[in-house]
């Protein structure tokens, strides 16, 4: 209530920063790399970058829905790994149906997290941590703790994912379809509007009659579905499923969402920003590899990029006590 004008001004300033900083950063990063290696701007490199970003982007898009609500999904990497194992194991039995089956497993994982959050009133970071543990265990049990290669007969059922048409890997159009679907859901559906309303002001959304619990479950189901989709794409690209396949994905995925400008406090952001965030993460990774930064040291950089992005984007008026 106090100093409303100043708070509003600060909020507007933060909003402007959130709006333009990510895109500017992306352009600057690409410019810097291109200055050192002009071939970076070639079509083939760009397509490769796109294909490499696709998996991360798909997972981060799902996560975006949960973060828009002010929650978090720590289960995405385990769910993706589980989906890859389900795909690898099931494809020899049911062929192409293994793909929807793997995605359905992700939906179920999200639904369990969601119901635990809504009905049992457990914060999402704990329910998803726990469900992540369950998913990891399921993947280990199902795979016999080993990596499961895709059988040769899977080429027809799964191979189309990684095939190319006129030099464009199919994972790029897959990611684009997911982007468009997510954008449509955000901007033109009741569920999308409800998501923003709950994230921006849960008490008011509740009073306005928004089914808050169902929205939360729905967002976690989307996150589970897209994490599983990312797992399927990853398995197709690596030609195997494994219980540790997506183990290094959680941090880059959270980083992609936050760097893109979706605030951890909810209500601000969206999948277009996440696309930019995912591209930044990819470009930074390429750039670091190019400069010779060790793959493992990149985790350090992402850790701090994440912290910085969150520090810039969160709306502190919504969390009087930062815990």
């Amino acid at each position: 209530m106090t100093n409303a004008p100043r708070a509003v001004l600060a909020a507007n300033r933060a909003a402007r920063l959130r709006d333009f900083a990510p895109l500017t950063a992306l352009i600057v990063l690409i410019g810097v790399i291109a200055a050192f290696a002009p071939s970076f701007l070639s079509v083939s490199t760009m397509l490769l970058l796109g294909a490499d970003t696709a998996t991360l982007f798909i997972m981060a898009t799902g996560l975006t829905w949960v973060i828009l609500l002010g929650g978090i999904d720590l289960s995405v990497q385990s769910v993706a790994s589980l989906a890859s194992v389900v795909l690898a194991v099931a494809v020899s039995h049911v062929g192409g149906l293994a793909i929807p089956l793997a995605i359905a497993v992700g939906v179920v994982a999200g639904a369990i997290s969601g119901f635990a959050q809504d009905r049992l009133r457990i914060p999402s970071f704990i329910t998803t941590l726990a469900v992540g543990g369950i998913a990891a265990a399921a993947a280990l049990v199902l795979s016999g703790t080993r990596s499961v290669p895709l059988p040769p007969q899977a080429a027809g059922a799964v191979g189309w994912i990684t095939a190319s048409t006129v030099g464009v890997s199919h994972v790029i159009p897959i990611a684009l379809v997911i982007l468009l679907g997510s954008l449509f859901a955000e901007r033109r559906t009741v569920f999308g509007r409800w998501t923003f309303a709950v994230g921006a002001g849960e008490p008011a959304a509740l009073v306005a009659g928004v089914p808050v619990g169902r929205v939360k479950v729905g967002a976690l189901m989307i996150s589970g579905a897209l994490a599983a989709t990312a797992g399927v794409v990853l398995a197709a690209r690596l030609n195997s499923g494994s219980p540790t396949l997506a183990n290094e994905f959680l941090l880059p995925a959270v980083a992609a969402v936050c760097v893109g400008g979706t605030a951890l406090t909810g209500g601000v952001g969206g999948s277009l920003r996440t696309l930019i965030g995912a591209l930044i993460v990819s470009v930074v990774r390429v750039g670091m590899t190019f400069v010779g930064v060790d793959v493992f040291a990149q985790q350090i950089v992402f850790g701090f990029v994440l912290v910085l992005a969150v520090a810039i984007t969160i709306d502190r008026t919504k969390i009087p006590v930062v815990k």
Binding site: I72, V254, L264, G303, F304, V307, V310, A311, R316
Partner: peptide, 14 residues
Amino acid sequence: RIPSLIASLGVGFA
């Protein structure tokens, strides 16, 4: 002033 969840996630990976 960022939640410990994120601060520690970043520091842990680092």
